[in-house]
Design a binder for these strands. Structure first.
Lengths: 135, 135
DNA sequence: GTACTAGATCATAATAAGTATCATTTTGTT
DNA sequence: AACAAAATGATACTTATTATGATCTAGTAC
């Protein structure tokens, strides 16, 4: 991943390394603030602005992806492979969920639109919420 | 549509009628503020809070749907049939776009998740932006 | 029609996510 | 070691959305 940074002309900084480490293998889809709050105790000089900047750089570099499924805030996912996201309407947690949908490979064209990426969003109730408050 | 309101126990008010009229057959996916700005000149007493409230009620009533594709704000669509949305990365316009993907009927279950709705989001460049600033 | 009440509206304050600004610091050269 | 470009951090600002609470109105009951 540091390679990806370098190849995109991004400088390697302790802040970026720390953020990448939080994201590595992370399937919780953290927001900028989630990441900031996790790092801040051990990295008191860290600024929230840096987290925002870094997430933007990483997204543009293709090292991570933004998940726009929750109308309240953006979430980030280090897994850049095509996969679906599920948002629980009750607890607002986001999960990776594999459902059998055949999506076309991007990029492609439709009606003069240039389609660069596709994402599938699923909404419903997660197993835990179903157990704790069924209906 | 007024029927739908009534059947959901929502009162018929001039504000709600006006908002529904703006939305009817509207494929531009307006935001709350777009709607407010369009109505305000001819409806000076209208409050932005009412637009927000009404959109929420209409969404809950199933009369319209929220489109969460633009990380900056929510958009609304009177077409509640399953269809995909396309967000142009350059001009941020949202378009309805039909692409051939077979989506399962909701609701259904996967791995103890209760899946209530699915939406497909497409990102790329719209025809107009491709013409005006190709590459 | 009048009276009533739940619910709706309006104005505005508050919140929260994200962006902009700019002085200072650091990285990766030269 | 010196330098320029880029990154960081503190903080101010913007924008979308939510909360609050006083007033008003739709829909019903009489």
């Amino acid at each position: 991943m540091l390679e990806k940074l370098k190849s995109l002309g991004l400088k390697i900084t302790p802040q970026r390394i720390a953020i990448l480490e939080i994201l590595k293998d992370n399937t919780s889809h953290p927001s900028a603030e989630d990441i900031y709050n996790r790092l801040k105790p051990n990295f008191p000089s860290l600024s929230l602005a840096t987290v925002y900047n870094t997430l933007e750089s990483l997204t543009r570099a293709g090292a991570i992806q933004e998940v726009i499924i929750d109308s309240k805030k953006r979430h980030y996912d280090p897994d850049t492979n095509i996969h679906s996201h599920f948002l629980c309407r009750r607890c607002s947690s986001i999960f990776d969920l594999e459902i059998k949908i055949k999506l076309p490979e991007t990029p492609f064209e439709v009606d003069d639109f240039l389609l660069e990426s596709i994402s599938t969003h699923l909404y419903g109730t997660c197993p835990q919420c179903r157990r704790s408050a069924p209906e």
